[in-house]
Design a protein around this nucleic acid. Structure first.
Lengths: 364, 364
DNA sequence: TTGTATGCGTTATCAG
DNA sequence: CTGATAACGCATACAA
């Protein structure tokens, strides 16, 4: 192979290093390094010259070398259960945007909801010397010591949406209870008196909290909860439909349903319509997650918006704060985001006088 | 700060280096390095000892140092216009999966459809010494020299879905023309004779090709194309609705519509239904992209599935091939994936005797 | 204000 | 089969 040329020349796409620039200018590498990082001890004269030459040769710093030297890279690791769902895709969108603005880049890993994969991802990210890690715990994770390993190594860790319970961790979460409360209260305000609930797996805190919010709203309205009106399932469309069919057999069937997920809400609604029930007239329905199809379905489904992008951005901001604090942060930092109820046709019983369809039409 | 301890001890989460292991075992770093990378010139005895110690101290290699030394990392850069859409999220899912299986990690960047951002992303990825780059060109990109820069630096580059026209690049794309052809032919086979087309911006090759497929099917059936039956727009739901309203004013309105996107198809369908037209009875509709809502809408919308995950995996496989070939690949490598028409209710005019709703029910 | 020297953790090239 | 040594490109403590 051809020997390295003496004078820096961008003939081919050859990478130019600081040493090359130093040689060319007849100064030391230190000067170059300082000039490029805008160190105060460099004369404006020199600075100009260095920058000019750097531009001329299109100098590009080797971030890896820099990271190796400094012991920390400008990389953030993200571990999500899966990326193709709408929720995580939107969160990652917010994260990438916030990270980029701060000069960081993000490495995406998927755990596929498996603890073992999560463990491997953590290890790999640490080996890549990431500056911090953002993660949403896999469904199957029961043991959390691989997360402890992260903080023990001095790498900041922020959980988002799904966090380990009862552990003092940094986290950004949605107030799911508030979401459940808002949805249920809204149904009660529409005049409904027997509000049923399609609940998700209770070992997941998000579903537990949505259910708590449901109960809170009932209690506030002085309505005793009725376990017969709560259906536990996997939140699928079919689960929602099945739940409704059961409820219709009751002596006093519900006049409203709050489903902890949009697919279940859709299932409820379709089962209702095909049983000849009017929606929202005889059965009002609210879902959760603001999936794309909620706007499109007939009638459009009211739903709780989770502010995914904000969650992503907030998580990155918190992580960067921890990174810059460099271990001097004491207690766990928590950030709770507030959900937003989007009222659409499926729950709109009372005629709203000249009001827009969605209470807060913030989306484009 | 406390001085580095002499003997490697995992008291805190202190990173253990090869030097630590070497000291502990009383051998040289070279031996450690070789034993860990399973070099042939290391005795099985020694190998065992090293591996045991590495496990004991939970040694983790510093990938950055390795990459710096070898001049290439195990990182792949991905640049997508945006990650939160279903299409790119699914593609990235396929990419991450394939990359992980090969021991690589992926860095995600978004261009936000802006050429300037695309340029910055490329620069940043090169500075991170990625082993290769996967990208889908931003809408606004007119100048391609930032891509040339990548290959000039010796870094393999693979385009997916959106590729620069007329340039000899490595690319994995969907056969959009075939998609348009399949959709249109299917409508003709259903007995439709006046098939209209909602087309997208023609400066994007994907929409151009879908339109070509449409024309091809017409020609094959001996039906002369009618420009009055082609509507050009932004593929929004409203654009689809507007197109249909226009067509209904024609002396001979269409009896079928192939829309180059699902949202437009939905718009067409809803406009038709609200004009009292029966779907598929009086107007058959086929969309493109297999969006989630197509299954959910009433009637369910027939659509062309793009095999996003396969595209992502294929792109990664091609990229890895180029990386391992180390510049010895001559001409541009092309890979064309075949779309799949999913026939649902919106286009099903003829009764299919005891056939499943979707022709090839491959999805779960 | 600038330069010298050293090390970050790994791998490759020698020589033994 | 193993070891000493020199890089990779950058950043900093220290000296001038």
């Amino acid at each position: 192979m051809p020997p390295r040329k003496k004078s820096a020349a961008p003939a081919t796409g050859a990478p130019v290093s600081m040493a090359d620039l130093a040689r060319e200018l007849g100064v030391s590498m230190t000067t170059i390094s300082r000039a490029l990082s805008d160190h105060h001890s460099i004369g404006p004269e020199m600075k100009r010259k260095v920058l000019k030459l750097a531009k001329k040769y299109n100098y590009q710093p080797n971030r890896l070398a820099s990271a190796l030297r400094k012991g920390r890279s400008k990389l953030l690791g993200i571990i999500v259960p899966y990326i193709e769902g709408r929720f995580f895709a939107r969160v990652v969108h917010g994260m990438e945007t916030a990270a980029r603005q701060a000069g960081y880049h993000v490495i995406i890993c998927q755990s596929n909801e498996e603890e073992a994969q999560e463990r491997r991802n953590i290890e790999a990210l640490l080996n890549l010397q990431v500056a911090g890690i953002l993660t949403s715990v896999a469904r199957t994770t029961r043991d959390y010591q691989h997360f402890d390993q992260v903080t023990e190594r001095g790498v900041p860790l922020v959980f988002f949406d799904r966090r380990p319970d009862e552990r003092p961790v940094h986290a950004v979460v949605l107030d799911d209870q508030e979401g459940g409360y808002l949805a249920t209260r809204h149904l009660l305000q529409q005049g409904c008196r027997r509000v049923a609930h399609v609940a998700g797996p209770q070992y997941l805190n998000i579903y537990r909290n949505r259910r708590l919010g449901y109960l809170q709203a009932l209690q506030e309205a002085g309505i005793p909860p009725d376990e017969a009106l709560i259906s536990y399932g996997d939140m699928s469309q079919e689960a929602g439909a099945a739940a409704l069919r059961q409820w219709l057999k009751l002596p006093a069937p519900p006049d409203a349903v709050f489903a902890a997920g949009d697919y279940a809400a859709l299932g409820v609604m379709e089962a209702a319509l095909s049983s000849g029930l009017a929606v929202p007239g005889e059965l009002a329905v609210v879902g959760f997650s603001n999936e794309t199809f909620t706007v499109i379905s007939k009638p459009a489904i009211s739903s709780v918006e989770q502010r995914c992008e904000e969650m992503g951005q907030a998580a990155v901001r918190l992580l960067l704060e921890l990174i810059e604090a460099d271990g001097s942060v004491l207690g766990p930092r928590q950030l709770v985001l507030h959900p937003e109820l989007l009222v659409r046709a499926s729950s709109q019983r009372l005629e709203v006088s000249a009001a827009p369809k969605e209470t807060k039409p913030r989306r484009k």
